[in-house]
Every structure is written in C-alpha cells, then in structure tokens.
Design a protein around this nucleic acid. Structure first.
Lengths: 173, 173
DNA sequence: ATAACTCGGATTCATAATGTCCGAGTTGAA
DNA sequence: TTCAACTCGGACATTATGAATCCGAGTTAT
C-alpha cells in the first residue's frame, strides 16, 4: 500500500503478470517449509489477495510443481527438490507456455502476399523474435528455486527463511 | 482474413503487441524504398488497418528511427542506414522501454516485511528476471534491419523487395 | 493562392489480467 | 462412526490495458 506509487510503474505491453512474482516468492518460501502451507497463510505473509494468490497456486499445482494436500492441516508442498525446479518452470506455469511473439503472417496478406507454399518456415522477423525468446527462456532456466533461496539468504545475512517458517506454523496448531 | 485462425493463437500474457511485427515489416520495406512512403500505402501493402499502423509509425518517428516527410508526396523514410537500426530499437520504440518484469516489492509487505533500508538493491527474484530481460534484449540487438532484409531476400530467392518497391510507387505519381 | 495530401495527437471499443465468490472434497477429531 | 472444520478447485464480476478509430494541424506541389 505504502510503496505502491514507487513500484507499480505502468509498463506498456511486454510486462510479465504480477502473479509470477508472487508465485516465485511462494516457491522460495516452500523451499524452507517442512509442512504443507495453506494458500491463505502464504497470502497473508506476502500481503497479497488470498483468493488471487490461490488462483496462481492452482496453476502451479496443475503444472505439477507443487502438490496440494487437502483436509484440515493441508496446504501446498513442493513436488520436487528445489534444485530441480527452474524459474522458467514457474513462469511458464503461471503465464502459460505461449511464446512472447506470435507471428500474424503479415507476409501472406495484402496485394503482394506470398503464396502459402512459400511460407512453410517462419519468416525472418519471426526467426529473430524466436531466437530472443529462446535466450530469455534459457536465462530463466539457469536459475533454480534453490538458487533463489540461497541468494535471499545471502542478501540479508540472517536466517530470514527460518523466521518465516517459524511464523508460518504458529502456536495455533 | 483467411489465415486468421491459423495465426492468431491466443497467448496468455507475455505476448508482444502485434504492432511490433507490423512496424518491423515496414522498416524492412523502407530499407529498399528510395522515396518517402506514406503510412496508408504501407498499411495497404501489409493488409492491416491504416490508422492503427499510423499510430505505430508515429512511435518510430518519436524514437527517431524514421523521419516523417509532410506534404503532398510525403511519407516515412529511415533516418539511419539499416545496418545501424537494430530489431531492439524497433521493439523498444513500439512497446516502450519498460522492462518485462516490474518488481512489486513483495518483500516489503506483510507481517515479515523487510525494512526499506535493507531493500536498496533489487531482490534475488528481480535480479533473475532482469538477467533474462537483458538476454532477450541482447539477442534482439544482434539483429539489424539490414540483416532482416537480407534474410527475406534469401528466403524467397527472388527480388521481392524490388517488386514491393515497384508496387509502392505506381504510375499515379 | 489554393487545394490536396501528409502526419500528429486525442478518443472510443474490445480484450485480458486482476480480484472475488461459492461449491466439492478431504482430513482430523469427537 | 459421525461430524464438523478446513482445504483446494473452478466459475464469476470488475478494472486496467492494448487495439482500433477519428478528426484536426501542418506542409507541399500545383
């Protein structure tokens, strides 16, 4: 609320949805958690809408990145060790696997349209965009959730994750 | 119109606006043009909305990538040799310079919020996203408009650009 | 001097992300 | 065994953003 004006700079179009950031934060927290964590608790911890975060956690669940435990003391748990979950996995789970660039096949339109037979391969522009898309994804694939957790720990030089886990499972068990 | 169903696959979020593709096609065409080309003509050539394309060409003009010539036989001309215009230049001109990821500073929210003093540097998640963003931009920067023109020429093994330029300046001069 | 043609910015419409709700299912305890 | 509480899951409004459009200012060739 207070830092809203500083952070929510409007972007024009290539912006990544905000849900991705929340989902990544949740994954990092789940790295340290030892019991299932409910979506509502994660939302309170991060100060975001509970129902909205739930939506994105469901996406992670569908992508098999987290496993949902139902029932009274249920919640979410990582399905794999955090070393085997990449940032790209999370981004694709939340944003969908669609590429950043979808070719509208402009070359096949208008009076000088290229014949469909000549358009089996993507056009030069599309190739350039695809290459950039691949570079982006490759960079995201290089960073695992475990890496993120380690970086967070280094940043603050105190066991923040441990403190958070402590907060997640209070006396009211 | 005919190839609509095949191309316009819906993407979820990280999609690049369609204007980028049109703008790039225009730049490639302008590579070969020897006289100013009006926006309306470019729109007809590519089979897209004239007024909408105009909007994006204005963005290119604002970014100093093309120069607008007013008056009766006016239109758009590239300001620099195509070797000195990168694909990234066009993308940033149309999409805006905003990064793909804007950090909402989740770490400063909620009951375990980090103090603002500890948040001078971007968080680990943001750093990973910025790195990916840089990789994406670097890939786009590698490809110039001139490169795109050459690739197009190779793809079709006939002087398509020449034919297009011929169509652009018909008898009605 | 004129008239036609150009670009430029302000405006409206549609799509998609954001945020919310309630129902189905499961678990733990009584 | 029963019950009750708590969990996730998908379907539903709302709002912000991009897509598409229009008309006015300026310039140039006639």
């Amino acid at each position: 609320m207070l830092s809203e004006s500083r952070c929510r700079r409007y972007a024009e179009s290539v912006r990544l949805s905000g849900g991705v950031e929340a989902a990544l934060h949740c994954c990092v927290v789940l790295t340290a958690a030892t019991e299932p964590v409910p979506a509502a608790r994660l939302a309170e911890l991060h100060g975001v809408s509970a129902t909205y975060l739930a939506k994105h956690l469901q996406a992670l669940s569908r992508a098999e990145l987290v496993h949902s435990v139902q029932g009274k003391s249920g919640g979410y748990v990582l399905t794999r060790p955090p070393e085997e979950i990449t940032t790209l996995d999370v981004v694709e789970a939340v944003e969908g696997p669609a590429p950043t660039f979808v070719c509208a096949e402009i070359r096949q339109r208008g009076p000088m349209a290229a014949p469909p037979e000549a358009c089996t391969a993507p056009c030069a522009i599309t190739r350039a965009m695809i290459a950039a898309d691949r570079a982006w994804r490759a960079a995201l694939r290089e960073v695992s959730i475990a890496d993120l957790g380690r970086s967070v720990a280094q940043d603050y030089e105190s066991d923040v994750l441990g403190q958070i886990v402590g907060w997640l499972a209070p006396a009211e068990h």
